[in-house]
């Protein structure tokens, strides 16, 4: 399998767990995997990305422009910021709930994500997911990272099956959060299976 998956969002949204689950699930299915993550200062409320490259033919640790099969975006503006990485026929799965920049209260730009979502729909195949609605049953949007992963898998875009990822959640998430994470993941899978881009 050859697949490039870009996970992007804002520091603190849990993009790292999502990318680790994808990488380890793909490896368990016998694939060669490389990845690269944002580390350092940008983690503090800044834009973050994880590049996951599945397959033997990946040399650069970062995905080249125009190569990503899937853009898993935890935030509308971050999806647009990373759009150049997407293949012409790639898909964006995006959280429709914006995260305002931490400097927004000092310099009000009126950013609310809506322009970004309109733009994305115009430019590419796109599945929009409302993180707040999706996670309402789980008490916190911090489960969105596994839920959006579920959406991508339900939509059949990652080349991974739900079972393998569930096993990875079991293995990587502390026991007391594992059940909720699995439920959030499966809720995402259901949305992915039934939503057309």
């Amino acid at each position: 399998m050859n697949k490039d998956i870009l996970v992007c969002g804002v520091g603190g949204q849990g993009t790292v767990l999502a990318s680790k689950l994808i990488a380890s699930a793909a490896m368990n299915l016998g694939n060669t995997v490389h990845s690269a993550e944002t580390i350092g200062m940008a983690q503090r409320g800044g834009s973050v990305t994880s590049h996951i490259r599945i397959g033997e033919q990946a040399y650069s640790p970062m995905i080249p422009h125009g190569s990503a099969d899937v853009l898993l975006a935890f935030e509308p503006a971050e999806a647009v910021r990373n759009l150049a990485y997407l293949k012409q026929d790639g898909i964006v799965i995006v959280n429709s709930v914006p995260v305002k920049p931490v400097t927004e209260s000092l310099h009000d730009t009126g950013y609310d994500g809506s322009d970004m979502l309109t733009y994305l729909q115009k430019k590419c195949q796109c599945i929009m997911v409302d993180a707040q609605k999706l996670c309402a049953d789980f008490g916190s949007t911090r489960y969105f990272n596994v839920a959006i992963l579920g959406v991508a898998i339900g939509a059949g875009r990652l080349g991974l099956d739900a079972e393998t990822v569930l096993n990875e959640i079991e293995a990587r998430v502390p026991a007391k959060f594992a059940e909720t994470n699995k439920a959030a993941f499966l809720a995402g899978v259901k949305i992915g299976e039934t939503t057309l881009p």
Binding site: V80, P101, D115
Partner: peptide
Amino acid sequence: PHSGMDSSDAPTLPMRPPVLC
């Protein structure tokens, strides 16, 4: 070379500069 999606016509993106926590 084939390039990525052209997003030069995108709306202005919010800046996310690093700040003290």
